[in-house]
Design a protein around this nucleic acid. Sequence first.
RNA 1: GGCGCGGUGGCCGAGUGGCUAGGCAGAGGACUGCAAAUCCUUGUACGCCGGUUCGAUUCCGGCCCGUGCCUCCA
Length: 462
Amino acid sequence: MTILTLHNTLTGRKEAFRPIEPAHVRVYACGPTVYNYAHIGNGRMAVVFDLLVRVLREIYPRVTYVSNITDVDDKIMDAARQNGEAIDIITRRYEAIYNEDMAALGVVKPDIQPRATEHISEMIAQIEQLIARDHAYAVQGHALFHVPSFPAYGGLSGRSRDDQIAGARVEVSPFKKDPADFVLWKPSTSEQPGWDSPWGRGRPGWHIECSAMAEKHLGLPFDIHGGGADLKFPHHENEIAQSCCAHGHENDLSAFARYWVHNGFVTVDGEKMSKSIGNIRLVHDLISHYPGEVLRLTLLSAHYRAPLSFTADALDQARSTLDRYYRILFDLKEVEAGAGTVPAAVLNALCDDLNTPQVIAELNALVRDVANADLSQRQQIKASLLATGDLLGLLQTDPAAWLGYGVQDGVDGVAIEKLLQERQNARQSKDFGRADEIRRELSAMGIEIEDTPQGTKWRKAS
RNA sequence: GGCGCGGUGGCCGAGUGGCUAGGCAGAGGACUGCAAAUCCUUGUACGCCGGUUCGAUUCCGGCCCGUGCCUCCA
């Protein structure tokens, strides 16, 4: 049996993954708040957990992957006010765009993608449980989680409650019993979206939605909880507090989720993405300039926990790596691949805490001797390459189309053929000056040519 | 200030207590009229200072630098 190891934030160590039920692995990852286009950092999270789920599916018979849509949030309300649009118009629009953009990155849609607004009653029920167990209290239309009621609080991020208060930059609301207490429910004005609750008309705090939706769709405890590294505190810390305390597991932080997996941040040219710097890279824009697989491989070219500097150079490198694999597949197009399996070295690398750079190295090793391989070795290489591509969510395009052979759109095939014939004539009469001139003309049209023993081929350069 | 993550050859990027990934770029060569593509050859790097050790890039301590988070900002 293949053993997956994962770095578990809860213990701070790399551990062997042991599912609660090997017959059914359950995963939750915090999804986007839908009020804008997703940026490449959101894309990284989606790609990393998509890959994790693919690897789990390779090992285990059944995997359920839940990733939520946050469609009630103050940032959404701000966006609605600014655009003069209804909130649900905005959230449904950006939810659809999010799913399209992630699909372009090769992300398989989660099995369940619950919306926060469709789980209000579950959230209210959980808050009532917390109040009943004296872990929360109602005051002035709010419901607040009382952090001192949960001594184990802070176990995920490793900060003491005192540290948090000492470092807090935000003024503490006067009605909080303790400065560290956080909101479970807050009142809405009549213009704001709201739902009736035991504490009056209001809306949920941010953290409670994930606790409620994960529990409803996966049951507790479940196997893996993921998200961006920025969510460790306070979001995931608070989820643990809510879910453990609602069920009386005050001494067991793993009573909610067993393994916590966090992906690192994406920077742009080494700088944080921010509106003020104006360097936010939206997936929606990037996919019109780069094939989705180039973006996906770029995101997988660093280990998922390491920071990733998103640069034009990194994109170019991912593209040339993919070009090389596609060229090999193109050269092997007459070779019968047969049923392929993912090479053990690749699966082992993936099972080593998703060591994707190692996977790429293994892929290079696989492909290194293709030129000197015999037929059965070529069949094996092709099958392994395709199987690995399927697992990684790469190499899903027809090689000829990827490389630009036989392109019909945006090229004048007749003119190209005419120029190629003219060049051929020039070469035969040793008029290489004219032949090179024609090659430059074609190059200016975006057409690259290759002279082979079988004649001259052309391709549309990407 | 607190907590976390990271600093590897020109660039990207794994990993390891001693056998020193991989890719890109560069250099040389083969092939080609010249190219392109491909193939061959070529790179002893691990932030700084101590310590442990026969031996540290890898372990321990300190420091420096970069980066993220610090409670929903109504």
